[in-house]
Amino acid sequence: MSEALNAGLALFVLALAAWMVVARDTFAAVVGFVAYGLLLTLVWVQLHGVDVALTEGAIGGGLTGAMLVAAAARLRRTEAAARAERPGWPTRAAAALLAGGVTAALAVAVLALPVPAPSLAPETAANMGATGVGNPITGVLLAFRAVDTLLETTVVLLALIGVWSLAPDRVWGGRPGPRHRADPNETLAYLARVLPPIGLVVGVYIFWVGADLPGGKFQGASIIAAMWLLAVMAGLSDAPPISRGWLRLALVGGPLVFIAIGAAGVATAGAFLAYPDGLAKLLIKAIEWALLPSLALTLALILAGVPERPAR
């Protein structure tokens, strides 16, 4: 039965991907992508990647879906002009050939994967004791390959700086996104009053449980960011002007703590991002607690968009 479920899931995911290719209207393709994100969450659970399923659900299902739907609706007026530039059949034939070739090459590679599957799981298991955390993925993210996570938090920050740098000069330092005003006793305002407190509790729970069970700061931060965004969309709160000092300090606070602890590792444990033995769990906790607010704020501001309104 599990094979039947996997086959059904794979077929459904491919059908959605094919729909996104052939759909005439961008909005229809975007709705297909929202469903595609949800189905991928199920694929990750079938691939025994519950942490990845959690991340896909929070980021792929929630944040990316909302972002694309909003963008598709806003770009509707440019739709007809853009669609007119559909390439002729020679280009389409060449593209199909290229895509078929890439798929065939990948399929051959998949079918020729080495039979004793190479795995780093035994080595990870052997060294998990030193990290003090139970969840192997948190161990990998914050101890064995901590430099990846450090680079990632800086990439997220750079993405935010990239989005901000698109602001027209006259509103530089202003507030991101349009001012959402909503009828106070409307459905959206009600949802934005009820859901965020629950979402905050769930976000912190998923962040907290991440040490020993699937979860962690990225999933928790994206849930908290989504909740704040809901309040902004309902007009209950407004994005702060990007020129505020506290905001910029909060954004860089997490990565700075990460770098500080990493640098301290050079003196105490002989290498950048090495933790002195016995202190690993404490330092990992410190890094995670410092990163959570910065990540949540960065993800939320990336979604809030390009500054459009003067600060005042």
């Binding site: 009600y190 009820v194 859901l195």
Partner: peptide, 16 residues
């Protein structure tokens, strides 16, 4: 309950 809340709110918004 969360799915109920989400579905109720979403259907109101879509209907509007």
């Amino acid at each position: 309950l969360l799915a109920l809340l989400a579905s109720a709110a979403a259907s109101q918004l879509i209907a509007r």
